[in-house]
């Protein structure tokens, strides 16, 4: 993929750990603070992404899912722009395809995921002229939802690419090779969501 990149990965769950490992194994430097050239926002964590019928959903649960995720996404993007210090950079916002397909008993987390998805487009439009490439990476709900079965199928098809690994794609989106992409969503879920 060429030049190694200083990358900050935001998130404490297994998805963030998986992406961090993939990026580290590819020779990139993972950092917690500026300066860095790429941000990966991956807050999704099955420990908290539990299903709930909307009839039983509490305000605290909706706040945790929708409000706190969006607030964290905005904060991470804004911090990254400062960290890029006018030199451009890459922002990669991850989301489960539940954003696109909806999820039975998962309205709260689907709202957050689709919010992050469309935030990607807005930020790409505003910050693209500054040399900041903002794109999204969609991953399988099975990687982050506590109960993807409850959420319902994204597709009735079997995966075209079983066990698809998002590592190489997130590396690409962090690289200079992706600087001509803006507001795009690349989906690495085995081909279930098309």
């Amino acid at each position: 993929m060429g030049t190694n990149v200083r990358i900050k990965v935001v998130g404490a769950g297994p998805l963030a750990a998986q992406l961090s490992t993939a990026l580290s194994e590819r020779g990139h430097e993972l950092v917690d603070a500026a300066p860095y050239e790429a941000l990966v926002f991956a807050p999704w964590d099955p420990a908290v992404m539990v299903p709930r019928p909307i009839a039983e959903l509490t305000d605290a649960e909706f706040d945790l899912a929708w409000q706190q995720t969006m607030d964290a996404a905005v904060a991470a993007c804004t911090e990254a722009r400062t960290a890029f210090a006018g030199n451009g950079g890459a922002i990669v916002l991850t989301l489960p395809t539940t954003a696109l397909a909806g999820g039975d008993h998962y309205a709260h987390w689907a709202a957050a995921a689709e919010g992050v998805h469309i935030l990607t487009k807005s930020v790409a439009r505003q910050w693209g002229p500054e040399g900041i490439a903002v794109n999204a990476l969609a991953i399988s709900p099975e990687l982050v939802l506590a109960d993807a079965v409850v959420a319902g199928p994204v597709s009735i098809a079997t995966p075209a690419v079983p066990n698809a690994d998002p590592g190489a794609v997130v590396e690409f989106l962090c690289s200079n090779d992706a600087r001509n992409l803006a507001g795009q969503l690349l989906t690495v879920d085995g081909g279930l969501w098309m």
Partner: peptide, 10 residues
Amino acid sequence: AAQRAIAKSL
């Protein structure tokens, strides 16, 4: 956008 995801989920 959140509204669209809520609609799909519901």
